[in-house]
Design a protein around this nucleic acid. Structure first.
Lengths: 216, 216
DNA sequence: GTTGTAAGATAGTGGCGATATCCAAGTTGC
DNA sequence: GCAACTTGGATATCGCCACTATCTTACAAC
């Protein structure tokens, strides 16, 4: 297929497709002449993944480039590619000052969960420490080890189930793309369901309080 | 305290504090003269909340204004204020074409969870339908009712626990600010823990597959 | 008084994600 | 064979957003 068809099928403006080609997010098509090139289903899939990451995951274009580099590096084992991708997606603008206490809390949590496969350089580990440090700073919110354990237990259950559901027999690029998009989209799905749960349960306690203290 | 002290204590650049005052995110201080005004702890708390929502939650400034409007409207009951805030935070750029099938799946899910307090206009409900529609479109990922139920069950448990932990006896603005910041920060905490869980469990299945098929 | 800084208003900056325009070279319809 | 159209490719421009810098006036403290 030609660029214009690619653009139509993915419902992405032609100018944007060209932009992605320019940025190296989308590999160039197979040239069939000096001013002509052919694109296939892989390009279409890749383009859909890119748009999903941008629109649902709000991943910046610069990060997308790092992600496709990992995706397309056939020498990189699947698990290492996922690690690179996880780091890129979690990377924020904030290196921030390290808080040793918070980092220790996080490492204790990781140990108590038996998560012995987490890399020490994991961006998520550092970022979590940043959040914990923020929670334990000024303000009424606090992150006790018990509360963190509760969250981690739930997250472990969710993550374990999700990993068990992926079809590990697919070929490398499909596998990576599916894990990536699944992680992003279902992450959003869960976040929204949590919000909906808040709305429902908050309504219930408010009503209970109102009927329990009718004159207050 | 004076603006400069407010800026120092919250570790926010003075120019940014002035910007927030201009935008109406931060109420003006009590004027003690034609060119002088006094700020108190409420301003400091509010400023910290605003920065947290921006930095952790990546909430746009325009949304912050809508949020503080709800926060400061003393006539708005707490639950209604939370509903407004939830809608503002979940609002994306995408009204998008409605997919009746996806919306029906979402409504079935909501019914099966017993979530009878969700407003029909809830932005989250619509957004979830958008994601489901995307999952059931082209691509290998699919959102079956069973999978959605699994996510919703977990989300319900999490949300219920979180709601039970908030101190409902605090005064209105503290209560709202705490629920809001808690929701945003712990949402991030959970998301990161999920990622860490993925990293650990994926490493385990990869290793199991490698030792199970040593010569493949 | 002199100096420093607050408050307030106005204008400017930088990053990012596209989008628009132009051009030379092929392709297609006739 | 010829004209109209489209493609790939390069360059320029746009719009939004979150700040940030500058300037002015007036008060406060020494």
């Amino acid at each position: 297929m030609l660029v214009s068809e690619l653009s139509e099928r993915a419902e992405v403006p032609l100018a944007t497709v060209k932009y992605y080609l320019r940025e190296g997010l989308l590999p160039a098509g197979e040239p069939t002449g000096p001013r002509r090139a052919e694109y296939d289903e892989c390009h279409l899939r890749r383009l859909r993944v890119l748009r999903l990451l941008r629109e649902v995951g709000e991943v910046p274009v610069a990060s997308l480039r790092q992600i496709v580099d990992a995706l397309d590096d056939a020498d990189l084992p699947v698990h290492d590619a996922m690690a690179v991708i996880a780091d890129v997606i979690s990377a924020g603008p904030e290196p921030g000052a390290q808080d040793p206490d918070a980092l220790e809390m996080v490492d204790d949590l990781i140990t108590s969960m038996g998560w012995d496969r987490i890399r020490a350089e994991s961006v998520d580990r550092i970022r979590l420490a940043g959040l914990v440090s923020m929670l334990n700073g000024p303000g009424p919110l606090g992150a006790s080890p018990e509360v963190l354990q509760f969250y981690a237990g739930l997250a472990d259950h969710l993550a374990k189930t999700e990993i068990s559901l992926v079809d590990h027999s697919a070929d490398r690029s499909r596998l990576l793309e599916d894990m990536l998009t699944g992680s992003v989209v279902y992450g959003q799905v869960f976040a929204i369901l949590r919000q909906l749960g808040h709305e429902h349960h908050h309504a219930e306690v408010v009503q209970a309080a109102a009927s329990g203290t009718p004159g207050a």
